[in-house]
């Protein structure tokens, strides 16, 4: 029976990896659509989201089956329950990519407000964080998970930079730019929220591997990162 259960766990791992891959792709495509001001690419992101929603349901069902039929304990219990939570976070990340795509649809037929500099940086950071969070889960790599969590402040800083530029340099000076500026501001907000979800995933990875709850205890991560106790 154990071999069969291990195979089921390996399948679940693969499904999460697949969902993570599709989610990464969704972010990439939504940001590409923004840069290219392409309604067509944006529509594609919205259509592709269905696959991710279906995967979330399939993963949830698989986890429920594993809980009911195998009644896992210890690391296996933590793995299955965290897989459920992580699939929820991935689905939310994909929804945020859809939100970005919707902003692209709003902006596509309007003149470009400004060259995009910090938003692509924030997008690249979000993509890296999602990729590393998935890697941390699949490889059960808590060090990587801790590194990703600590990068969340970079995302906050970039979001703040975009926000102050759009408000001070555009909306305040020329209110007619507000609809486009607010759309870009929302894109930055969506990307920053994506980073927040990746930190959730990484916190779940740490709980899964070490059985330690690090949620809301950032000081523990800083301590670890600085090489030990105070």
């Amino acid at each position: 029976m154990q071999r069969h259960f291990d195979e089921e766990l390996a399948d679940l791992n693969k499904e999460i990896l697949r969902m993570g891959g599709l989610t990464e792709e969704s972010i990439l495509k939504s940001v590409e659509a923004l840069k290219a001001r392409s309604a067509e690419q944006a529509e594609q992101v919205i259509t592709d989201d269905k696959k991710i929603d279906e995967l979330e349901l399939a993963i949830d069902e698989k986890c429920l089956d594993l809980l009911a039929l195998h009644q896992p304990m210890a690391i296996d219990l933590r793995f299955v329950t965290m897989a459920m939570k992580i699939s929820t976070d991935l689905e939310r990340i994909a929804d945020l990519a859809v939100d970005i795509a919707q902003r692209v649809l709003q902006l596509a037929d309007k003149p470009q407000l400004k060259p995009l500099i910090d938003i692509p940086k924030l997008a690249a950071l979000a993509q890296t964080m999602v990729k590393e969070a998935i890697d941390a889960f699949v490889r059960k790599d808590v060090e990587l998970a801790r590194k990703v969590i600590l990068r969340d402040s970079e995302a906050d800083n970039l979001r703040n930079l975009v926000q102050s530029e759009l408000i001070n340099d555009y909306i305040a000076k020329d209110p007619s730019t507000a609809p486009r500026a607010v759309a870009l501001l929302l894109v930055a907000r969506h990307l920053e929220r994506i980073c927040d979800h990746t930190t959730n995933i990484c916190e779940d990875v740490i709980f899964m591997v070490e059985g330690k709850v690090v949620k809301h205890h950032l000081e523990i991560l800083h301590e670890k990162q600085n090489g030990g106790s105070k």
Binding site: M1, Q2, F5, P72, M73, A74, I75, D76, L77, R78, E210, G211, K212
Partner: peptide
């Protein structure tokens, strides 16, 4: 049952 500290307990609980 959720987070045993000793790897021997973990091995037993997970079969």
């Amino acid at each position: 049952f959720t987070s045993p500290k000793d790897s021997r307990t973990e091995d037993y609980l997970t079969g």
